[in-house]
Structures are given as C-alpha cells and as structure tokens.
Design a protein around this nucleic acid. Structure first.
Lengths: 195, 195
DNA sequence: GAGTGAGGCTATTGACATTAGCCATAAGGC
DNA sequence: GCCTTATGGCTAATGTCAATAGCCTCACTC
C-alpha cells in the first residue's frame, strides 16, 4: 500500500472543500476519508477526531473571512469603509453558506489559533468604525450593532427566510445605510457635549 | 406491559422540553424514548422519525414565539410597539437558546402548519411596523431590516460572540433605537414627496 | 366475550465515530 | 547500501444511533 501523503493541512483543506460543497452537517470522517483515498481511522493520524476537524475548519473560515474583509476595507475611509465591509461580508457568506455559521461561534479559550482568528475578525470590524472616533463602551456598542445587522441579514438570507421576491440587494443596502447613519449620529452626539 | 399512553402531542412536548434543556443537537430518539419510559422504535408509532420530530418542534417553537410577540405588542403603538417586540423577541431567544434557531428556518412548502406559523411570525413583525405606514417594497425592506437586527443580535449573543463585559442590554437598546429612528426617517421620506 | 387495531416490544441492519493493535513504508544513521 | 525506527496506512472490534420488520398484547368496541 502506497502512502497517501496526507498531513493535517491537506486533511483540513479537504474538509473545508467538503463543507463548502455539502454543508456542515455532511462533514463526516467516513466520507472525507473516501475522498482522500484512505480509510476513516487513518484520519486520526492527522486530526484528533471529528470535533478537532470541525474546530480546524472553523479557524480556517474565520481567517479566510477576516482576510477578505481586511482586503475589502483598504482604500476606503469613513462610511465607505463600512459599506465595503458589509458588501464583502455578505458576499463571502453567500459564497460559503456551509462555513459562514462557523465564523460566529465563540472562540475556544484553549485554542490560541482560534483566539487569534477571532480577534482579527473583531479588529477588522472595529477598524471600519474607527473613523467615527467612538471609544470605550460607545465603540463596543457600535461594533455590536454593526455585527448584529450584518450577521442577522446574512443569516436570514442563508436560512431562506427572505421568501418574497423583492430585491434583497436593495434591502441590504438600505439597512447598511441606516446603520451607518445611526452610528454617525451617535458619534456626533458623542463628540458634541450636550448642554 | 402497560401502555405508556403516548400520542403525538405528548411526544412533541417532551422533545420540546429536551431541546430546551440539552440543545437541539442532543435531541435523539433513543434518549427521548428513555425519558418517556419507552423503547426508541415505539416512537415511530407517533412520529415519522427524527426529521419529522424536529419539524414538529420547529413549528411549535414558531407558534410559541409568535404568541409571545403578539402578546408583547398589544397596548403599544408606534415606536413603543417595536421596542416591546424587540425586548420580547430577545427575552424568548435567551430563554430558549436551543429552540430559537429553529424559528428562523424557512417554512417547508409541504407543511401547512409550518406555513401558518411562519406567516404568523412574519405578520406580528409587520404589525409592529404598521404605524410607519410604509407599503410595498418599502415595507418589505423595513421588515427585513428589523428582523435582521433582532436575529443578528440574539444570534450573536446566544453564540457567545459578545465576550466583552460591557452591558449587553444597553447595546441592544441602542441598536433598537437606531433601527426605529432609521425606519421612521424612511417613513418620513416616503410620505413627503421629495422636491 | 370475541374481534380488532393501536401501541408497545425484540431483533436486525446500516451509518458513523472511535479505539486498539498490526504492518509496511519511507527516512535517517552507520 | 543495510538497519533501525517511527510514521502513516490498515483491519478488527465496540458502541451509539436511526430506521425497518415483524410479533404480541392490551384496551376498546360490538
């Protein structure tokens, strides 16, 4: 029997592809092994079971999304940066419906890579809001509002909750514009000490 | 062997309780049967397998949430109604983290009960926005924006994505206020033909 | 009280994860 | 160029779970 030449990165990459194609539910060691030309127990040489594999796919997905958002934000400032981030966020989620939900699960305290990837994701959103010059609790509140809107819209869209034929792109653009306007008003209020 | 006296409603009710306690992942026919003092195959006399049971729990959850929201909205008008709806929505989701995600899955075209429950849920959100007097696409856009914000916030909260200690209630109240303000501005623009 | 059907049951199959333990291959030391 | 070693495959076995088939008995009806 020739060696298949697998290692952890290649196994995780195949798992990522599988989740993209078949959805998170369908990620099974048996099927993945088959695709890699190997029997299921062999995967345990590279990965510590299904839970570990899922965790690895999660980290990889957080990294990928963070990278996409970082690239989307460059060259834009102020409100434009937020809109660019929002569009990239939604596009990535639509392109990877199987993996998108993984990007919002809380980081595992014992996984340094997960913590790093999650922080990157948080940082890129925070970065898009930097121009508003909010700080402390106000900044946290703003980040939460933006993340909630984006995640909610994308999550509902992926779940097929927008059954009506009305233009979804338009609904999204309007929502993002409202969020931007709302946060800008918060920033204005913040910067202008009330009498 | 005495009969256990089960029927579809009692089996579904036990499943609902199980999801509330243990989460959706842990809903298994084997465990549920054990709780009901019965062996797993017996459940097939009342329910058409795990998929059917999950679908039934989903419908029940949509109904329950719709009922809660309907009750929350009565006695409020305008912006107040939206805030009341939002608070009730979040409270229910926090109280039922295992079932909440089921409430957003698209209805199954072949399940009349599911369609009815989903419509009720949509209608109660639409009702809270009625005072804005939006119509057609504008109304659809508004409903989507409100649903997205609510779903996103509670989804992130349930996922443990709000790791920072900052006051989550405050973040939510601010977001809802911004959504209300944004939609009111849309309504004003809509009612005032631009020059 | 006989008949009947609903609601339990056991037995079995099949998918899957996981563990234990074996064996060959590929890589490195002499 | 051999010998050692550990890595990366394997088979075999266990356990959990869903699902199906087919049996048996209780409870209700006539």
């Amino acid at each position: 029997m020739p060696r298949a030449g697998l290692d952890r990165p290649s196994v995780v990459a195949a798992a990522v592809a599988m989740v993209d194609e078949l959805g998170a539910e369908s990620l099974t060691l048996a099927l993945l092994a088959g695709r890699l030309g190997v029997k299921a127990p062999s995967l345990y040489k590279h990965v510590d079971g299904l839970a570990d594999l899922r965790a690895a796919v999660t980290v990889e997905s957080k990294r990928e999304l963070a990278g996409v958002l970082e690239r989307a934000a460059v060259g834009h400032g102020g409100a434009e940066a937020i809109v660019a981030l929002a569009d990239a966020y939604r596009a990535w989620a639509k392109a990877h419906p199987g993996r998108y939900p993984m990007t919002i699960v809380a980081e595992r305290a014992d996984d340094a890579e997960d913590i790093a990837a999650s922080s990157r994701l948080y940082a890129v959103v925070a970065g898009a809001l930097r121009a508003l010059r909010l700080d402390g609790e106000d900044e946290v509140d703003a980040i939460r509002a933006l993340r909630a809107s984006l995640h909610g819209f994308v999550g509902l869209e992926a779940a097929g909750a927008f059954g009506l034929p009305d233009d979804v792109d338009r609904s999204f653009a309007l929502m993002v514009a409202d969020v931007v306007a709302g946060l800008e008003r918060r920033a204005a209020k913040d910067g202008t000490p009330a009498g």
